[in-house]
Computed example of a mutant assay.
Amino acid sequence: MKVAVVALTKQGIQKGAEVEKALTKRGHQVMFFVPGKYSLLKLPGHRSPFRKPLRDLMAELMHEYEAIVCIMALGIVVRLIAPHLQDKRTDPAVVVLDEKGCNVISVLSGHWGGANGLTSELAREMGANPVITTATDVQGLPAIEMMAKEKGWAVGDFSLVKKVNAAIVNCAPVHLYCDEEINTSLPKNVVQFPVYQFKPTEDAGALRVVVTNRFLPGNSEDTLFLRPKNLVLGIGCRKGVSKAALRDAVIDALAKANVVFESVRAIASVDLKAKEPALLELAGEWNIPVQFYSPGELQKVFSGKESGKLSRSEFVKEKLGVDGVCEPAALLETGNQGKLILPKTSGKGVTVAIAEDI
């Protein structure tokens, strides 16, 4: 985690040096900000003297760092960060430590931003008392967004997270539809079912949490969808294909497979497309990594366990020296352990196949 540590007084700076050392030891990337008038103090670690007003410094840190540890009064920090709060999905974790190192307080983005975890971690390292006030943590209950984060699931409608967590805390019924084993201990009011039992018109009075990469109908007011990142797009295309054609082909393929974009974790293709502008630009816009495989690697898939299910193209064989691109590329990116849930689809110079991790 990229962490900024900020202190104001000599005593705070001494404690900040300990914090910087402890967090660096834990593998965090830490920068220690100290007032310019104390820049000559002999301290270890990475320091950055600041001479601008503290409010201006905090405005910059809120956008540049994943977490901020403030060694100062809690009230000061609340006033400094208040004008810059935007969204719990993007706000950084903010933690406060008193100058004597007695208490570490989780202030902002406790769950999704990681402030609660950082508070506990820092308290252990400093021998301090962790102060965490989120209701689920206080009662020893699971928070639904933390479960999603730990599993790598994308959260659908984030506005429903608060509603689901409130139901968990208040012992209201929550039905969790998930085919994966949940290692977290669930309270009695959270009952797990397999996904195939989900019916959008049932479960009257209960909030529903559905973990699936499939598109399923559901009441937007009482159904939270969590999307596992377990789909790979295998893509082949002609040289110079347009970005619009690629985008349309992917959208069409997802619709045919009845799966959602949020579950796509990677794109795979042949290495001859490693400089294809439209493919690289689209992957960048979507923030999805692209893996390229050689024709030889792709051809090996045609002699594997899925060979009988793969389509072959004489045209592609003649041009690239491999029987096909999109299907073997998708399977290779699953480690050859996945399954094709959508065979090759083609149109407008683009081929798309979808593989699912198993």
Rank of each mutant, 00 (worst) to 15 (best):
A166I: 03
V301L: 09
A266S: 12
L97T: 05
T133M: 07
V195W: 07
P328C: 02
V6K: 03
G152P: 09
S346E: 15
E314Y: 05
V104Y: 02
I71N: 00
A17V: 02
G284A: 10
F33C: 12
A67P: 15
I267Q: 08
A330G: 04
M147I: 15
R79V: 04
G240C: 10
A278M: 06
P83K: 11
E285T: 05
V316A: 00
I354F: 00
D91R: 05
A167S: 08
A128R: 02
A255V: 12
D157K: 10
P92I: 07
L43K: 13
V96A: 06
N213H: 09
L254I: 05
E285S: 09
S109H: 03
V352D: 03
S39K: 14
A59L: 06
A278N: 06
G152F: 09
V164H: 01
Q139Y: 08
G12Q: 03
Q291Y: 10
V250G: 07
K309A: 14
C102D: 10
K188N: 11
G45W: 02
S242C: 12
K309H: 13
T90Q: 13
D252C: 15
A123V: 06
I71K: 10
I354D: 08
G205C: 07
E18D: 14
K256D: 10
V350G: 08
N219S: 08
R55P: 04
H84L: 09
S185A: 07
V174Q: 02
R208G: 04
D357V: 05
V96H: 00
A166V: 06
R238G: 09
V195K: 04
G110N: 03
K149I: 15
N129E: 12
N116C: 01
V191N: 05
N336W: 02
Q11T: 14
F315G: 08
A128F: 00
G304I: 05
L186M: 12
E333D: 11
E181S: 14
D323S: 12
L57G: 10
L272A: 06
L54W: 04
L122C: 07
P44F: 00
N165R: 08
N258Y: 04
K151M: 12
E180D: 13
I288R: 00
K21P: 05
L224S: 01
I76H: 13
N183S: 08
T223Y: 00
A4N: 05
F215D: 11
L108C: 03
E145Q: 06
F215I: 14
M58T: 15
V174S: 04
S311P: 10
E221F: 05
P289K: 14
P277N: 02
V78L: 07
V301W: 02
V34M: 06
K100S: 06
M147Q: 10
L160A: 06
N230P: 09
R238L: 04
P200K: 10
V290P: 03
R79I: 14
P130R: 01
G284E: 09
V164E: 01
T223C: 01
L176R: 03
E314R: 13
I132E: 04
V77K: 08
E306M: 14
L8G: 01
E221Q: 15
